[in-house]
Amino acid sequence: MKLGFVRHGQTQWNLEGRLQGSSDIPLNDTGRSQAREAVKVLGAGGWDVIVSSPLSRARETAQIIAEGLGLELGPSYDLLIERDYAQGEGMVETEALALWPDKNGGGIEPLDSVV
């Protein structure tokens, strides 16, 4: 079995350097373009299914890729949702790190849990 992992395209929060984990921030136009570019990279991969997290940015990225590859979009899985940054969600990363070095504290989901 061959697995490939593709991160969702850019969102406004990505552009602004904000912590974005479980918040459902949509793709921006750059993110949509990035998803279309991913189709070119993945085109010869012989993929059987495209799945994603249920967050809209991940679903839209997956939908663009699936359509580009001529595949039906598969299911979403909650276990693929990104790290929960809790009190840090939406903060600029440098601000969050000043409060919680190494992103430990503030209710932030431990990295071990995400992995």
Rank of each mutant, 00 (worst) to 15 (best):
64 I>Y: 07
81 I>P: 09
72 E>W: 02
76 S>E: 12
77 Y>H: 14
71 L>N: 05
65 I>Q: 07
67 E>L: 07
64 I>R: 06
69 L>K: 03
55 L>W: 01
73 L>K: 10
76 S>H: 12
64 I>F: 08
75 P>M: 01
63 Q>V: 03
72 E>A: 15
72 E>T: 15
24 D>W: 08
55 L>G: 03
61 T>H: 08
54 P>W: 05
77 Y>S: 11
23 S>N: 03
56 S>W: 01
41 V>F: 07
39 V>G: 04
61 T>E: 05
51 V>S: 12
43 G>S: 14
26 P>I: 00
80 L>P: 14
37 E>M: 03
77 Y>T: 01
34 Q>E: 15
53 S>C: 13
39 V>W: 01
50 I>F: 03
67 E>F: 06
72 E>P: 15
46 G>M: 09
66 A>C: 11
67 E>S: 14
66 A>M: 11
44 A>F: 06
39 V>Y: 04
72 E>L: 11
80 L>Q: 10
48 D>E: 15
60 E>A: 04
30 T>E: 07
31 G>S: 07
44 A>I: 02
54 P>V: 05
52 S>P: 10
40 K>I: 01
35 A>I: 05
47 W>F: 14
23 S>R: 08
49 V>W: 06
42 L>Y: 08
64 I>K: 08
60 E>V: 06
47 W>L: 14
68 G>M: 00
49 V>C: 12
41 V>E: 10
51 V>F: 11
79 L>P: 06
29 D>C: 03
42 L>I: 09
26 P>S: 02
25 I>K: 13
79 L>H: 14
72 E>Y: 08
63 Q>N: 12
42 L>K: 07
23 S>E: 03
47 W>I: 08
79 L>N: 13
55 L>T: 00
60 E>C: 03
24 D>Y: 09
28 N>R: 01
70 G>R: 00
51 V>W: 05
68 G>F: 01
70 G>C: 02
26 P>T: 03
51 V>A: 11
46 G>V: 10
25 I>Q: 12
39 V>F: 02
28 N>M: 00
65 I>K: 03
45 G>E: 13
30 T>G: 02
62 A>W: 06
63 Q>E: 15
67 E>Q: 14
62 A>Q: 09
36 R>G: 02
24 D>L: 09
47 W>E: 07
51 V>P: 12
36 R>K: 14
62 A>E: 03
32 R>C: 00
34 Q>F: 04
70 G>P: 09
58 A>E: 04
62 A>L: 02
44 A>L: 10
31 G>A: 06
44 A>H: 13
60 E>P: 12
79 L>W: 12
58 A>V: 05
68 G>W: 02
76 S>C: 11
33 S>D: 08
75 P>Q: 11
40 K>E: 14
48 D>T: 13
32 R>Y: 01
60 E>M: 07
67 E>C: 06
54 P>M: 05
49 V>R: 15
45 G>T: 11
28 N>H: 06
36 R>H: 10
64 I>M: 07
32 R>D: 00
59 R>P: 02
25 I>S: 13
49 V>N: 04
73 L>H: 07
57 R>W: 06
77 Y>P: 05
23 S>F: 04
52 S>E: 00
